[in-house]
C-alpha cells in the first residue's frame, strides 16, 4: 500500500447534534486527508470533537453534510447494515476501557470479529493465536479478562483489533487507563503495528507522551483542525 495515497479523505464535514430542539455543531466544515500507512494522533480539549471525528472515520456515525471517503468507500451514504460490514472488513478498534467480553477467554474475545466472516472454528483459532502471538500473549489465550492485568487486557484488545487484518486501526485514548510502563508497552506495540505491519493508525489522546509516538499530531479545537 502506498504511503502517499490518502486512505481517509474528509471534505467540508459538518456534524450537528440536537439537544432537544437546540442544534449543536461539533464539527464545522472540517477537511482532512490521512495517508495510508501513517500513525496520526488527534489531540484537543474535551468537547473539541475528537471522538466525533474518530467515530465518523470509523463508520460508527455519519456526517450531517460533507463527503467522507474511507478506505475507498463513501461511508457518509451507507446504511447501518453496510456500515457494519464496512467496519468489520476495514476497521480495528482499540478502546480506552479495553471492552473485552468478560464471559469469553482472551482467545475467544480475539475470535469475535472473525465470527462475522464465516470461517471455520479451526481457522478462527489459528488466526486468533497468530494475533495473540503478535501482542505477546500467546500463553494467556485461555485466561479470562479478569485474570489479566490492565496492560494485558489492552494487548488482547489490540489482538482483537488486528485479527481480521483491518486497513485502519482507530484508538480512542488507548493508554488512558494504564500506568506509564503499560502505556509504553501499548505504544511500542502500536508503533510496531504501524512500522512492521503497515497499519494506518489514528489515535485520540490527551497524553503528550503518547502523541509523540505518532508521525503526525493534529489538534482539534471547536470543531476545526488547527
Amino acid at each position: 500500500m502506498s504511503t502517499e495515497s490518502p486512505i481517509v479523505s474528509l471534505k467540508e464535514i459538518r456534524k450537528t447534534f440536537f439537544r432537544g430542539k437546540e442544534p449543536i455543531t461539533v464539527l464545522d466544515g472540517l477537511s482532512l486527508e490521512i495517508p495510508a500507512g501513517s500513525f496520526e494522533a488527534l489531540m484537543g480539549p474535551s468537547g473539541s470533537g475528537k471522538s466525533t471525528l474518530l467515530n465518523l472515520i470509523a463508520g460508527l456515525d455519519r456526517p450531517t453534510s460533507g463527503s467522507a471517503m474511507v478506505a475507498g468507500a463513501n461511508i457518509g451514504k451507507m446504511s447501518d447494515g453496510d456500515l457494519a460490514k464496512f467496519r468489520s472488513g476495514n476497521i480495528g478498534f482499540i478502546f480506552q476501557a479495553y471492552n473485552l467480553l468478560p464471559v469469553l477467554t482472551a482467545q475467544e474475545n480475539v475470535e469475535l470479529p472473525l465470527l462475522l466472516h464465516g470461517l471455520s472454528s479451526a481457522e478462527r483459532k489459528k488466526r486468533a493465536q497468530t494475533a495473540l502471538r503478535v501482542v505477546g500473549l500467546e500463553d494467556r489465550s485461555h485466561h479470562d479478562p479478569r485474570q489479566l492485568s490492565g496492560g494485558q487486557e489492552q494487548r488482547v484488545a489490540i489482538a482483537r483489533a488486528i485479527v481480521n487484518d483491518p486497513t485502519i486501526i482507530v484508538a480512542d485514548e488507548p493508554t488512558g487507563d494504564l500506568d506509564r510502563k503499560s502505556a509504553d508497552e501499548i505504544l511500542n506495540l502500536m508503533d510496531r503495528l504501524n512500522k512492521e505491519f503497515k497499519k494506518t493508525i489514528l489515535m485520540v489522546t490527551h497524553d503528550p507522551a503518547a502523541a509523540e509516538r505518532a508521525t503526525v499530531t493534529r489538534k482539534l479545537d471547536k470543531g476545526q483542525l488547527r
Binding site: 447501518d80 447494515g81 460490514k85 467496519r87 468489520s88 478498534f93 478502546f95 469475535l112 470479529p113
Partner: peptide, 10 residues
Amino acid sequence: GVLRAIGFPP
C-alpha cells in the same frame, strides 16, 4: 456497543 462497533449487525 462494542460488538456493533466491530461489525456485528443490529
